[in-house]
Amino acid sequence: MLSTHQLNITLNKQSILKHISLTVEPRTITAILGPNGAGKSTLMKTLCGDITAGLEQVELEGLGLHTYSSLELSNLRSVMPQSIQLDFPFLVSEVIEMSLVQPIQTDEKAIYIERALSLFNVSHLHDRNYLTLSGGEQQRVQLARVVAQVTRNQDDQQRYLFLDECTSSLDLAHQHQVFEVIQSIVQSHNIAVIMVLHDLNLAAQYADRLVLMKQGRIVNNGSVNEVLQENTINRVYEYPVQIMPHPKGWPMVIPA
């Protein structure tokens, strides 16, 4: 279980997160939503252990994050940041291989890399120079890397996958493919996903729980139907919206 109670984060004398209480349930997808500057990324970084000031305030399996080494944490969660800058010409297969902290045998390694790449339909990029890929291809390779890290052990330990705007460079079809893959691993691997999203409709379609933030506070936290209410969204985004049911059931947010 990953949880935080009354979390406060102050960076450069500015209060970024205020009184955040949140519990992430097993085998769920939680989407953190909110307007620009709401503190979504900071909350995600705090939960995954990037922000030193928040380490003691976040509990993983009942223990503060500060009690874990980075190696131990890497066995319990993996993280996809908003952007990754790499200046050296690694092959795609080598980028995936990096997610193996402990080296494994060559033949197992080949299987591991192939499985990771095929999950996101990027097997054909195996021998390509990462630097020559398009933004969308790079993003799918990085997704393959973080998903490989969080699914590399076959035990039933609960693990966490953090995704910050993980489909920002992808087209419509690839966006949906990625979320379908993520939904399926949540079920098959006992993984809880915490992701930052801008697209309310993607969140409505794929997330189990929504956390709506504004100015460093959680405004609303609950199921998709609980959170996506017209007046709430109007107030938080300061923009008029209308909510209509998608033919398949989930709510759809459109400008009023």
């Binding site: 131990e72 990754i84 080598e94 990096m98």
Partner: peptide
């Protein structure tokens, strides 16, 4: 190996489990 991972950034290599 930690240097390889570090080329993708300090945070990324920490997430991978390396002692940066």
């Amino acid at each position: 190996r930690p240097l390889n991972a570090f080329l993708m950034g300090e945070a990324v290599s920490t997430h991978m489990g390396f002692d940066v």
